[in-house]
């Protein structure tokens, strides 16, 4: 059953899934991290407390979080075309994956920062640190273990999202499983895809836990 073409098909799918997960995770953080930081800093009682900024940003984040991912992919097609020139394939999938995960990441980042004891921010202020220094030297380093945990959660979510994208032409294990498993009804391939996805999720969780522990000195 495991002939050469099946193996290469599965490997290609796995490679594409890993690629989509990590690259869109990276871009998701690029978008979500600053938004999360601003959400935190403009909260009541924080360094840059600003009710209207916080409210508007929060509403925007909530709107994007309410759009089901499968609809977001379709809804973003014109934008995706403008960005990467096509709406099909692995690279096209990066656009909705990044945009879909960014608001989720923003909320996770905000929560991680909330866990940092307020006394530390106060101490930094007493030492004459400005908001940027407080964020760089205190908030982010102190929240790092929690941020890493949240990165694992995000990447695992993205494994699932990318598989969903596979059904509408994004490639990766999702597409292999859908085409060969659902459409062609090849139970073997479908089960192998499942096992590979499970292994990938376990690996991300395992590495995330290790890394988070390494940076946790609390």
């Amino acid at each position: 059953m495991l002939d050469e073409s099946t193996v290469s098909l599965l490997f290609k799918g796995l490679g594409e899934t890993v690629y989509m997960t990590f690259v869109s995770g990276f871009f998701g953080f690029l978008l979500g991290l600053p938004v999360g930081i601003v959400l935190f800093l403009t909260r009541k009682g924080q360094l840059l407390e600003n009710r209207s900024y916080n409210r508007s940003l929060s509403v925007l984040v909530n709107v994007f979080r309410s759009i089901p991912f499968i609809i977001l992919i379709v809804w973003l097609i014109p934008f995706t075309r403008a960005m990467v020139g096509t709406s099909i394939g692995v690279n096209a999938a990066l656009v909705p994956l990044s945009i879909g995960s960014a608001p989720f990441i923003a909320r996770l980042v905000e929560n991680s920062l909330l866990e940092v004891p307020a006394g530390l921010v106060e101490t930094a202020r007493a030492l004459g640190a400005g908001p940027i220094q407080v964020t760089r030297k205190v908030l982010l380093p102190e929240a790092l273990p929690s941020l890493i945990n949240n990165a694992s959660i995000t990447l695992i979510t993205l494994v699932g999202y990318s598989a969903m994208g596979g059904a509408v032409g994004a490639g990766g294990l999702g597409q292999v499983g859908y085409q060969y498993g659902y459409v062609g009804y090849n139970a073997f391939i479908m089960n192998t895809v499942l096992i590979l996805l499970i292994a990938l999720v376990f690996l991300i969780q395992f590495l995330g836990d290790r890394l988070s522990k390494k940076f946790n000195h609390r």
Partner: peptide
């Protein structure tokens, strides 16, 4: 705020719960 930050640097402060950074 920048002048205040400068003045704060010349006023040390210690706290009941020490407030050390656990990551450092």
């Amino acid at each position: 705020s920048s002048e205040l930050a400068k003045e704060r640097k010349k006023i040390g402060m210690i706290f009941q719960h020490f407030n050390l950074l656990s990551s450092r």
